[in-house]
Structure formats: C-alpha cells, structure tokens
Design a binder for these strands. Structure first.
Lengths: 226, 226
DNA sequence: TAGATTGTTAATCGATTAACAATC
DNA sequence: TAGATTGTTAATCGATTAACAATC
C-alpha cells in the first residue's frame, strides 16, 4: 500500500479511500441535479437524506476535498459541483474506445450520456464482419485489429469492454498493450491486468443477482451503501 | 438494523454482510466459467488470484455458506456453483420488467445474458408513442401505463429503470406501487423507495468516473476490491 | 442573541487479514 | 508420512458514526 507516500512531493491529488471515491460520483450527480433545479445551498443532512447516508459520512467525505461549507447554510452547490468535477476529472474530456458492437456496446455509443459528461468516444470496434462498417450513431464500427492504431494515434486512455465473457481477457490484454490506462469491464468475466492499469467492473447481471439476494431477504435498500 | 434478528425463527437464509453479498456473484461467475472449462476443483487461493482477493477473504466468505472444502483439494466446483446459485436465487427464474425502451433498455431486452441467467423479461415499457409497439427482440414495447397490470397479473418482482434522470423517481414510485420488490436503477439519478423495497444502483457513468479517478492517480486495479 | 451546521476528534463498529490447528 | 489446504479464531486495519466545540 502506498497510501500517504506522496507527502514528499505534496502533489495536489491525494489518494482517497476507496469507499469515498465510489461515493463522489453520487455526490456529483446529486449536486448537478440540484444546480439544474436552481438550488444554491445544500447541507450535509440534505445530501445524506437524498443518498441514504449519514450526515457524518458526508462531512467526512467532503473534508477530504478542498471545499468548505458555512455554518447554518451548508455547502454552496456551485462550489461543490466544481470541486467534485475537478477531483473526478469530470471537468475535462476523456477519450474512450468501446470494444464490442453488440447490443450493449452500440447502446453506449449511441446513449449520449457519456458524451454529455465529458467522454469522447473515439471508436467502437468488433471482430464480426457483419457489423464492421455499420453506422452506430455518428460512428462507424471498425475492425478490432484497428484498435491499437486508434488508441496510439489519438492518445486514448480509457477502454470499455463490452464483448462476450470468453473474449474479455484477450481484449483487455490488447487494450493494455496498446496503451490503455483504465478499463471499464462490462463483460461477464473477470480480467487481470498488470499493475498500473486500473480496472472497474460494472456488470448489470451481477447487480441484478445482488438485488435478488436482497429481495429474497426482504431487505430494505442496502444498495445505497455502496 | 435488523441484523441477526431472525435467530428466533432460524430460517435457512441468514443475512450476509454487504461486502460478502457483493462478492458472491463474482464467485458464481468464476465457478461457472471454471465448470464450463472442465475444472473440477478450485482452492481459495485460486479464487483469490482470479478475483484479486486474498485466500483468507475467500474462505471467510465461503464459510458463511453451506459449502465445505477438502484439505489438499479445495472446493468442488460443481458444489460451489450449486450453493452459490442457490444463495443468490440463480437456481430459479425471476420475472423482471424493463422501464425505458431507449438505447440501454432495448439493449438489455435483446442482450440475452439476462434470459440466459434466469431472468424472464415480462415486458419493456416506454411513454414515447414513437417506440410503443415497436419490436425489441421477442418483445413489443408497451405503454408505461400498462406496467401496473403486467406486474400484478404476472407477479413480477423486479424492475429495471432505464429512463432519463428526471423520470427515474416517478417510475420507481409507480413500480413500487404496482408491487415491485426490487429495483435495479440504471438512471443517472438516485431514487428513494419505502423500506422493504430493495434498490441497487448500477450506473455505467459513475463507474467510468471512478475509473477516471483511479487512472489519474496511476492506481493499480482497485476495481477488484468491490 | 439563539440556533443550525460545519469540521474534526474520538469511539464504535465491522471487514479483512494473519495465523495456525485440524485434516485429508 | 509429509505437505497442502481448509475452517476458524484472534489481531489488525479501516470505515462509519457519534459527539461537540467552533462558527456564522
């Protein structure tokens, strides 16, 4: 563990605990909606209520950031949004490639939410000749063999894996070799990558299975805990 | 918190810690693939390596289940799969409705992975007249107003929300009112439901934002930790 | 002023890891 | 038998919560 090692160089970004990092996007989502709704101030209690947390947790989390609230008022929504966006890198554009032009890959490419939140889709790739060349939104499906070139030429750092389970590891290896620094794995199989490359798994099926467990036990929403 | 309250009735299912519940689907995925690959035995160390955990964690997790390993051999893959499937309810069929027939909703309906893993999609709904009636795989998009009827008549317990953020809460309310017991929320907004109804959030965008944070810090895969 | 809310410290709670006897 | 692996207990580690002085 390297936690707290960078006190030497005192870089701006300090490593935050995992649970905090996973809550930050939720905070960002919330304050974006609040701002759109014209709300100017939000208290830790408000945030906690909306997200199913405690005020303590929210204040602890925000204390890691360079944001300060005001007694009796809470936090300024605009400031919170700016700081959260900064920490999460949501204030800049991130290039991404999608591998797999099946239902899920195509949906992501067309979805719009990604583009709207700072992700620039630099290409969607597949090995299936029947889909290569087909238009997906503004993009044309390219042959998977072209992915290295695109990643290198355009300096793409993120890759989304949306292929069948059996192909996931191979795709990951290829992306990492091409220079990808972070992999979002949607495939129903775990991938292993070398240290220095980040992997986040996001599998709808596993989330559904977790949900089923909770439903069977009649548990209230623990989903928010994450 | 109701943890450990059911010692009175001593039901078969005991409430497992959240982190454990979130790892079980990963174990299941893994052993399914191992079984398909013809592997018969797997040790806690093997599982740990594949999933980026420690052997200790794996053994602790499995000790919650009614599964036993053998010294020098590990766990029997077939048994592990059976027990995990049982605990996660993956040994039976779960009826589900999808609300929102946009890119994501349609992709899920057509995806096939859900059906293949025991989820029966009883309907896909939307409010947009341009998509109502359209074929999506074997299904026809229905008007959202019909969702209550379908949920009640067919006894659907799970709902997937794949609508724009602004509509998510309204859809959740409607589903819960119709009798839905668990909500998988894919929308980019948090929903609140009454106690007794489970919510699991699975947002690709938030996972991507988490990934960006990790990439910026040059962190190795913490994604596996989840 | 009185009251609400932050920011932070300390206490609690829970999860992960280490260790090792039991066992095949 | 010797050695590897489980199952479990205890230790450690870390995250959440409680509490409260500071402050606006």
């Amino acid at each position: 563990m390297v936690r707290g090692l960078n006190h030497v160089t005192e870089r701006s970004a300090r490593e935050l605990p995992g649970p905090v990092v996973r809550r930050l996007p939720k905070y960002l989502t919330l304050v974006q909606h609040l701002r759109e709704g014209g709300v100017e101030w939000v208290s830790s209690a408000d945030v906690a209520r909306a997200l199913g947390l405690t005020g303590s947790t929210v204040r602890q989390d925000l204390s890691h950031l360079k944001v300060s609230g005001l007694s009796r008022r809470g936090y300024r929504v605009a400031e919170l949004e700016r700081v959260l966006a900064r920490v999460l890198g949501a204030d800049r554009t991130w290039k991404v490639v999608i591998v797999g032009a099946g239902n899920l890959g195509q949906a992501l490419a067309k979805h719009g939410d990604l583009q709207r939140h700072g992700f620039e889709i630099c290409g969607i790739f597949d090995v299936d000749r029947r889909v290569i060349g087909r238009k997906v939104g503004a993009l044309k499906v390219m042959a998977f063999s072209e992915v290295d070139g695109v990643v290198k030429e355009r300096g793409v750092r993120l890759g989304i894996i949306a292929v069948p389970a059996w192909a996931a590891q191979e795709v990951a290896d290829r992306l990492v070799a091409a220079g990808i620094k972070g992999v979002l794995n949607l495939a129903y199989a775990n991938v292993l990558v070398r240290p220095g490359v980040a992997v986040v798994n996001a599998r709808i099926l596993e989330s559904l299975q977790e949900l089923v467990y909770m439903v069977r036990l009649g548990v209230a929403d623990r989903g928010e805990r994450r």
